[in-house]
């Protein structure tokens, strides 16, 4: 079960059971929805911006362990960062889960390196991130990674 242990690491299970920054910001500056209907994953992401900086970020909704933990850890990772840094982080994260890119400098996000062994789960790990991107870009359409 070693691949499975890599996928369901303690930190991922912890964030699934106790998601951080869970909820909706009142009067948010940015808002986007992510929906993978085939899996049954659905999240709302709200942001408070200070200039170009993500001052506050919250997510709400329900999904599998991978998508929920990814959303939770993402909020921790991008909070307080300028938009460009958050987007650069997404690029790195995306490379790691899709093509086994380096997990250095990713902090807790490195826990998702094991997802690469489960190609069908990449869409779970990246849903919140694509939703964040849409929120930052002000896209109106609901995001899906299916």
């Amino acid at each position: 079960m070693s691949e499975l242990d890599d996928l369901y690491q303690e930190v991922i299970l912890d964030h699934y059971k106790r998601p951080r920054n869970f909820g909706v910001i009142d009067a948010p500056d940015r808002r986007a929805e992510g929906d993978n209907p085939l899996c049954g994953d659905r999240f709302i992401l709200t942001l408070k911006m200070r200039g170009d900086v993500i001052e506050e970020v919250r997510f709400k909704g329900a999904g599998c362990a991978i998508s929920t933990a990814s959303a939770s850890i993402m909020t921790e990772s991008v909070k307080g960062r300028p938009r460009a840094e958050a987007e650069a982080l997404f690029d790195k994260f995306h490379t790691m889960v899709t093509s086994g890119g380096a997990a250095e400098d990713l902090g807790k996000l490195a826990a998702f390196a094991g997802v690469g062994e489960f190609p069908i789960r990449v869409k779970c790990a990246t849903l919140a991130w694509h939703t964040l991107k849409a929120a930052l870009e002000g896209t109106q359409d609901t995001v899906s990674t299916e």
Partner: peptide, 27 residues
């Protein structure tokens, strides 16, 4: 309770067991 069907499917797959998870085209 507390476990998403998708996670159930992934873990069963590791045991060689194929089941379906999702909305089954019946949302």
């Amino acid at each position: 309770e507390g476990i998403h069907p998708h996670d159930i499917g992934t873990i069963l797959d590791q045991e060689g067991i194929a089941i379906r998870t999702g909305h089954h085209c019946a949302q």
